[in-house]
Simulated scan of single mutants.
Amino acid sequence: MHAKPLDREVRRTLTAVPVAVEEHGKATEPGQLPPGSEGPGGSARRIAELEREVWELRRANETLKSYVSKALELDITPRRRDDHLTAAAVPSSRRVLSPVAAPAAAVEFRVLGSIEAYVDGRLVDLGAPKQRAALALLVSQVGQPVSVDMLVEALWDGRPPQSAITSLHAYIANLRRALEPHRAPRTPATVLCTRGRSYLLDSRAVEVDAHRFGESATAGWQALDRGDPQRALHAFEAGLALWRGEAYAEVSAARHVTPAAVRLEELRLSMIEGRCATLIAVGNHELAVPELAAFTQAHPLREYGCELLSLALYRAGRQANALSVLRAHQKRMVEDLGISPSPALQHLELEILRQAPELRAPGRVQ
């Protein structure tokens, strides 16, 4: 459906309305004389005529507003002569209706591994390694401006060439085209925005898997605190399933990204321990044993993992193995670090030796 051209007289009225209203003030009913206009017949009649014109112009303006409102509801965008795209070629969800319009695309970033971006559910090409690294830096600071100087320093390890700024601008332009493929030319970016001499990923326009991972961790621990291990297990597994490799793989060693990468890795290890603790809580200690064995081998200094492995072994009927794990850990701590194991591990060893009833496995939850 195409919008009919606006009547030439209506165009004239749109221009005339502000002038007439400004000159004559508030319009009255057609033919009604405003207060104080009684006087010589000519002046009064002229004022009445002008007011009548203003009234008609206001009615025409209201009619036009109604027409435009209906046109927008019908997904019709009047086309200017210099437009290169028809209204039908631009989906209504992509049109910029105001400077503060909603973002042009639903963008999802995945950083729990190498950087990936999905626009409307489709994987997009993020270009060359430095361009991908620039995006990873921006994603690590979602909602916060990242200065040009910071980006240049990180991308070129503090030794930028003379062309660094030009190259960075090209990377940003390429990323904007990839992240907002439907954005009209010369319209403001709504995903990767400019803020002075900085760039910013608008947190309202994007989703990040690292944020969902953190939410899953919180939900899991809260469910455990409420005594709901099945819900906790579901939350932990959903969060861990998001991981594909090292977080922010392209720039994990960059000074401005390292804190975020380290925090996420520590949270991942804690979630693995939480998941195994939940498996033990629901009676699936046979499944927890091999996972904890691999985990403690990869992270031998994490005492909670050692504690969980010993408990799982004991509940699986392997008391000797449980004690062996605790004593091997104690030896490692003393020889490598010169410290004693934690009170929790010492207490667990004593409880295993006396076969404390508190260590018995609960009934298996299906």
Rank of each mutant, 00 (worst) to 15 (best):
L135E: 00
V119M: 04
S69W: 01
V54F: 11
R122K: 13
A87N: 08
D125S: 05
R132V: 10
P91Y: 03
A128P: 08
S66H: 06
D75C: 01
A106G: 11
A117D: 00
S43N: 15
A117I: 01
V124N: 01
A44N: 08
R46S: 10
L97T: 02
G41V: 15
A87I: 07
S43Y: 14
A105D: 06
G41D: 15
A128G: 09
V124C: 02
V111P: 05
T86F: 10
L126T: 00
D82K: 11
S140Q: 08
Y67S: 03
G127P: 02
A89W: 07
Q141P: 09
V96M: 15
I47Y: 07
L74E: 02
V54T: 12
A60V: 08
Q131G: 04
S66Y: 03
A134E: 04
A128D: 12
L74R: 03
T86G: 09
E73D: 05
E73N: 01
R122M: 12
G113I: 02
A104L: 15
Y67P: 00
E73I: 00
R79L: 08
L126W: 02
V54Q: 08
S66K: 05
Q141T: 09
V148Y: 10
L72A: 09
H84K: 15
T77Y: 05
R59M: 10
S69C: 12
S93A: 13
R45A: 14
P99M: 04
V148F: 12
Q131E: 07
M150T: 11
A105L: 08
K65G: 10
V54M: 11
G113K: 04
S66G: 09
A87D: 04
V148L: 10
R110Y: 07
T63Y: 07
L135Q: 00
K130G: 08
G121Y: 06
L50E: 10
K70M: 05
F109S: 00
R45I: 15
S147A: 08
V142M: 07
E62W: 03
R81M: 12
T86M: 13
A117N: 01
P129T: 04
L137E: 07
S140W: 12
M150C: 13
E62G: 04
G121W: 06
V119N: 01
E56R: 11
M150R: 14
E51N: 14
V124I: 03
R46P: 04
L97S: 02
S140A: 13
P99E: 04
A102R: 12
R46L: 12
A134L: 06
A134T: 09
N61D: 12
